[in-house]
Design a protein around this nucleic acid. Structure first.
Lengths: 149, 149
DNA sequence: TTTGAAAAATGCGAAGC
DNA sequence: GCTTCGCATTTTTCAAA
């Protein structure tokens, strides 16, 4: 499990700005050969350091309501409930947390009705959920994928 | 602001699975010409429907502590505080919410000490923050970018 | 909007340093 | 591990249906 050096981080930095940046262009910018960039990217992909994805704008595909829901579960039920939640397509993030909530999820919906149905029907049906705290997003200020220091 | 048809959604679906999928390959899979795929992708990029990005695995770049922090602010201070928070590189998500918390952020840190410094120094310095609720992630079950229905 | 075909750019594999 | 060099594939451009 090798570490990443400065060159690797530099490559990731360029790819963050443009996920389709070519090997050739990155090579030009870093003053190394195209082969070097290619080798390193392939190594990082194999080591699961990053992956190529697209970030879809939820509003543009009709998902206008976004919510973050904090969930308190019965003791020892985290795992099972988290696995169940992760299977729903509305849910884009699921994590177990230490703090006020045992599980926190982030989910996207077409409209408020869909959100209500999700909370009152889907969540209500899950055994072991003690309480939920629904936060509806009013405005988004940042949603970045650039964590390179 | 045109709507997306089935063909557009099909293209996005393939790109979700592999952000580097070539126009040619998508064209083969959808039984249309390569030019069609390219035209539509470029239109969607222009319309800000999606963008090509990379998703970096936080752990692999030394960011081992992840937190979701709910913040309660003084009335009328949301905007200003959200803008301030969005400027920090540790912070990857900032939203204003209706619910228990006025602002919810998600942030990544190298270790617990960095998280503590962030809460006790950076957040504590911001005027207008009334209270914070820190949730530290113990395990992540899902973190998807595939919102296509 | 979609297609096809030619030109330009990029990606790939192998060999050598 | 980095580079260079051919060759394959892909992207780009543009005219036409």
């Amino acid at each position: 499990m090798g570490k990443l050096d400065q060159k690797d981080l530099a490559i990731l930095n360029y790819l963050q700005e443009n996920g389709r940046c070519s090997y050739t262009e990155i090579a030009r910018l870093l003053n190394v050969s195209e082969g070097t960039v290619r080798t390193r990217i392939n190594r990082m992909l194999k080591d699961d350091v990053f992956e190529f994805v697209i970030h879809t704008n939820p509003n543009k595909i009709g998902l206008n309501v976004q919510a973050i829901i904090g969930i308190t579960t019965k003791l020892g039920k985290h795992e099972e409930i988290a696995e169940e939640l992760r299977s729903y397509s509305e849910v884009r993030f699921v994590g177990a947390f230490s703090g006020t909530h045992d599980i926190i999820i982030q989910a996207y919906f077409k409209n408020n009705e869909e959100l209500m149905d999700f909370v009152n029907k889907k969540l209500a049906q899950i055994d072991g959920i003690e309480s939920e705290e629904v936060n509806v997003e009013l405005k988004q200020y940042k949603d970045s994928f650039s964590y390179i220091p």
